[in-house]
Design a protein around this nucleic acid. Structure first.
Lengths: 226, 226
DNA sequence: TAAACATTAGACGTCTGATGTTTGTTACGG
DNA sequence: CCGTAACAAACATCAGACGTCTAATGTTTA
């Protein structure tokens, strides 16, 4: 008749529903999602169709499928899995330069939308970061450092920037760990985080950008010779 | 035994082989890949397993599966499909700001690694871009404009930056088309591409960055009021 | 002759059922 | 208390079948 109803593949719809279940928080990160037979019953599709959808999202990094155990939620955004796979295919130097690009923009935007509450939170993180360094707790230092940078990205008010920046997480942490092992790296002083925060508080975007540039120059000095 | 042979899912291996077939150029972009029965015979797996792999890569943007027709190669990198899906979930303003971050870094790096051959190529593209504008061929203008930016990203020498920048392609083109429709947008003059190229040729990274900043400021003025 | 319609072969979409493998748990025996 | 064996749950894979869609080809008709 007159209804040339083009039916989109069922599997695509299942992908969307699974994605929604994650982003809506129905299944939190780390949780195990229902088993295949349960999802088959819920979505009224065959196992094959369901598995195609789960596989697609697993490949994207949203899920991790453990044979004989179950499927777990590993991320809330699809960018992380793909991004991490891509990052590993490039030189550390290239990855760092891209992070720098995002860092610079985050600093610039954060300076433009200064928020006293966020700034106070950033100061707390910076203090924690400093204390961790002097006490030799490198694990805590790395965590606080990353939280600081991530919060700056969030303070930019640009959700895409924040999401992209977050996707660098694991890769950057790995790189940082390597850097820490290099003798002579001073995690407390030469990275200019205090200056960055001051610039953000002052609303001086240009100054904020320059502190980030200085930071990169310092970091690049500790990059392994290619 | 000392060999706890953990066998990774067959589908994952198929994913890798399909990916290699694309990146190695065995199947070029736009080409149709062999049918499912043919691939089943080649990889010695069941159709269900093969489909899981194809679906995963299709979701990642590498393939496009057309029902009743076949499966076509749509990209050589997995980042594009995922990225484009993510971009659409964010404000145009946020996307533009991220592009600006990459643009700035590309300009800075390109200025640092000036190459006479590339610069000549960039001049050609810029000339084509200018001619297209005065002749009113907006299609060609948009294409030349994008090629110019993409070549700058490539000239940065950072393959990850180039890949990420390329992933913006479709989204940016769409945005640019909208901008063009806005009355008063001057594609030939106010975007400072000539100044950018001059700065790159002079090896002046700071100047290159400033032209990009000026460009963004101009573009942001034409953003639809949120 | 050319445009509109009908047919057909190939390709993807989905379902069903069965069997293999891996993992986590539990109960048993030492 | 501990190690091991048996069991159950969950994912992995396979094989076959049928439906539906697309593109190409063939046929009819104005």
């Amino acid at each position: 008749m007159s209804t040339p109803v083009v039916r989109p593949p069922l599997a695509d719809e299942v992908v969307a529903r699974l994605r929604d279940a994650v982003t809506s928080g129905r299944w939190g990160v780390g949780e195990k999602i229902p088993s295949e037979p349960e999802l088959v019953a819920e979505y009224k599709v065959s196992r094959g169709t369901l598995r195609e959808a789960v596989k697609a999202l697993a490949h994207a990094g949203l899920f991790e499928v453990l044979r004989g155990d179950g499927t777990y939620v590993r991320a809330t955004s699809e960018i992380s899995g793909t991004a991490q796979r891509v990052y590993r295919e490039h030189l550390d130097e290239d990855v760092l330069q891209v992070r720098f690009a995002l860092d610079t923009q985050a600093a610039r935007l954060a300076a433009g939308s200064a928020d006293t509450a966020v700034i106070a939170e950033l100061r707390v993180l910076l203090e924690k970061r400093r204390e961790s360094w002097v006490s030799g707790d490198y694990e805590a230092w790395s965590a606080a450092d990353w939280e600081f940078h991530l919060l700056v990205a969030q303070a930019s008010g640009n959700s895409l920037l924040h999401e992209l920046y977050e996707s660098f997480g694991d890769v950057f942490h790995g790189t940082k760990m390597v850097q820490r092992l290099e003798a002579g790296f001073d995690g407390a002083l030469a990275t200019g985080h205090e200056e960055l925060l001051d610039a953000i508080e002052a609303g001086d975007g240009e100054a904020a950008v320059h502190t980030v540039i200085a930071n990169l120059d310092y970091c690049m000095g500790w990059m392994p010779a290619k």
